[in-house]
Write a protein that binds this DNA or RNA. Structure first.
Lengths: 120, 120
DNA sequence: CGGCATCCTTCGTGATACTG
DNA sequence: CAGTATCACGAAGGATGCCG
């Protein structure tokens, strides 16, 4: 019935790619972890926490995360404007996995850097 | 002692970025999952399984993974040449996390795509 | 067979200036 | 304050051809 050689490039077989396409970029993961720690933050607060991100990239990143239902955006119609960001429930189910990934990274980073040097 | 505002961009706080910088690219994850399924594969076998990857990118991806100690490369001095790739122990400790990520992706992908459409 | 070298295109990212 | 708009650049990725 089934072909022996499945196509590993399609999304059917590799949903991970679907996920990574969304927060595998330079900043998304960082924003998620930050919001996970701090619960609610305003635009400029995030900007200050992540010192090196540009305003543009923060905007783009937040928009993407909001579109994917991972971040909630709450704008208050005040002058000056105030906008608060927080994680959605969906994002919160993802965070434990991110934490596992972080732990693995912590444990293995040193060894990996050794690998790169020794050029086995 | 500590500054209230930590820098979330440094590796100390975000080892995930270190990991993602390594296999967060377009193909690494795919190669890891494929090798996890198939145990041992030759260069052209991987190439066929992942139909859409270019030869160049497969080479680059495998080299990166090898350098990080995630993939083992075994070359047989024959004519024509034969090279076999497999996961290292280190990579095998990572795979469960990847699997979790894959499961999460499977469960949530549909909802996420709905989110993108409804533009909440 | 399993690469490497080169060229070329596209995308992500950054810098800067402007706005409601 | 919280963005948007525009320009510019570098890196990632693809196409093609050559080699041991």
């Amino acid at each position: 019935m089934e072909n022996k050689v499945k196509n590993y490039a399609d999304e059917e077989h590799c949903p991970v790619r679907n996920v990574l396409d969304r927060f595998g970029d330079k900043w998304s993961m960082l924003v998620l972890m930050l919001l996970s720690d701090m619960d609610v933050l305003r635009f400029n607060e995030i900007h200050k926490y992540i010192g090196t991100i540009s305003q543009k990239m923060l905007t783009v990143t937040l928009k993407k995360l909001e579109a994917d239902g991972l971040v909630e955006r709450k704008a208050y119609p005040e002058i000056p404007p105030r906008v608060e960001y927080s994680l959605t429930k969906r994002a919160k189910t993802l965070m434990p996995i991110i934490q596992d990934l972080a732990q693995w990274a912590n444990k293995n980073m040193a060894d990996i850097q050794d690998s790169r040097r020794s050029v086995v």
